[in-house]
Design a protein around this nucleic acid. Structure first.
Lengths: 106, 106
DNA sequence: CAAACATATTAGTATTAGCTAATGTAACGA
DNA sequence: TCGTTACATTAGCTAATACTAATATGTTTG
């Protein structure tokens, strides 16, 4: 049985608790991007995106590497990438489930 | 490529964004429990736990069934259970990673 | 049917998080 | 070296969230 500290876990999950952050993750899931590329991608605000990137880094979900005046961000590793994929898979399944069986519940 | 609506996704992930909710999920991951069992388990407040259970149900993460005056909650299905496990796995890996390579970053 | 128990709901408050705008820092290029 | 570009940081405001206490609903049991 895997023993994970709940506070560490929450810190990690905090990264996934905001729409902008999740969109950033989707945006850089396949390949790394600079901050400004991400800003363009999401049609967002530079300061805002930068703050979320700092957050995602703190949560352990992404890593950044500086190259000259650019900073490239990418999701940390394949396992995190797999987790992101799995969330989509589970979500699809849950949606189907909810649609089929629980539509009488609101 | 899996296409998932971002707002639906956020609604789902919202369930994982709070410590109490994650603790509830951990508590009922293996077997269903009544509200009061969960309250005891977490040493929590009845109203609070009940609200979080409603939230988790709305997020699609858990389902409840009434049996007399008791309501039993359980995680929705095996796929959700797998996701919870995977989070722990990824987290372990990330922690190791952070400890080894990024300890110079705070 | 009344009391007791299990759970849900509501209202009010406190805490947290996210956003924007402004400013700071560092690297590059003319 | 000065201006420009890329990114980070800070401050202030607003909105969302979570908590507690009180009350309501529904079920069982005597």
């Amino acid at each position: 049985m895997l023993q994970v500290d709940i506070d560490t876990k929450m810190k990690f999950l905090h990264g996934l608790s905001n729409k902008t952050r999740v969109q950033i993750l989707e945006s850089i899931k396949e390949d790394e991007k600079t901050v400004s590329q991400i800003v363009q991608d999401l049609n967002g605000n530079q300061s805002n995106i930068s703050q979320h990137l700092t957050c995602l880094k703190g949560c352990g979900l992404v890593v950044g590497r500086q190259d000259g005046k650019y900073v490239y961000y990418r999701v940390r590793n394949q396992l995190v990438r797999d987790l992101l994929t799995m969330i989509d898979v589970v979500l699809e399944d849950v949606e189907k489930d909810v649609a089929c069986c629980d539509s009488h519940i609101d």
